[in-house]
């Protein structure tokens, strides 16, 4: 190589676009007149690095695609197992007599959110803001009624023994529904252990009532 170290630095700067003014003119003249200088600039600008870079980028892209494909494949398999993403109630929900509390607890909120389109909210009592809230409640629709979307609720109670009262379904169109769980034992006994419980299903009447 006949080019000096200083010239090589200038050629590298030219290839990177970092030269301007007289230094750039001088380097360009050298490239135009000197074959070795031209090859150096071309090499630096990518005529020789390009293929290597292309191969490297392609390899990395392929690896990324592979990861994405793997993820999508796993998601697809999971979706297929869940029957197209549709959340289904456990078959036991329609069973007669068997304790369906686990299925209700697992699916109740999903059904409320997905099927009925109503929010499962906790609402404090009307008169006493510090009073215990109902186990579940569904606010009544607003004054503008939608296309007959009835607040069909699958409510659930907190975990407890099977001998408690289980609310399997409440369907009260256009009305707010709250479910209060109440212990059947004395308050002290109920606090000490999870005894049988009952429920009060509260359904809002029309304003003004009868």
């Amino acid at each position: 190589m006949s080019l000096s170290r200083q010239t090589m630095i200038e050629l590298m700067a030219l290839a990177d676009g970092e030269l301007d003014g007289s230094a750039r003119d001088r380097a360009e003249r050298l490239v135009a007149q000197n074959e070795e200088a031209r090859q150096v600039v071309e090499a630096i600008r990518g005529s020789r690095l390009g293929p290597w870079l292309d191969e490297a980028i392609a390899a990395r892209s392929a690896a990324a695609d592979g990861i994405a494909d793997a993820v999508m494949a796993k998601l697809g398999a999971a979706a297929a197992r869940e029957d197209g993403g549709v959340v289904r109630l456990a078959a036991s929900r329609r069973g007669r007599g068997a304790s369906r509390k686990p299925a209700l607890v697992a699916s109740g909120a999903a059904v409320v959110a997905l099927a009925a389109g109503v929010a499962l909210v906790v609402r404090v009592g009307h008169d006493d803001a510090t009073a215990p809230a109902p186990v579940a409640s569904v606010p009544a629709p607003g004054p503008i009624e939608g296309p007959t979307v009835a607040p069909s609720v699958v409510a659930q109670q907190s975990a407890g023994p099977a001998q408690g009262v289980e609310v399997d379904e409440i369907d009260s169109p256009s009305r707010g529904v709250s479910v209060f769980e109440i212990p059947l034992r004395s308050a002290a006994a109920a606090a000490a252990s999870a005894g049988p419980s009952s429920v009060v299903i509260w359904i809002d009447d029309e304003p003004g009532g009868k």
Binding site: E166, I170, D171, R175, V199, G209, K210
Partner: peptide
Amino acid sequence: KKAFLRSLEVTASANQPFFVAGQSY
């Protein structure tokens, strides 16, 4: 008139009360 309570399904043992409330009277 529109049903106040179209459907309520409850499973309970004997002698275990449950309540339906809220109707104005």
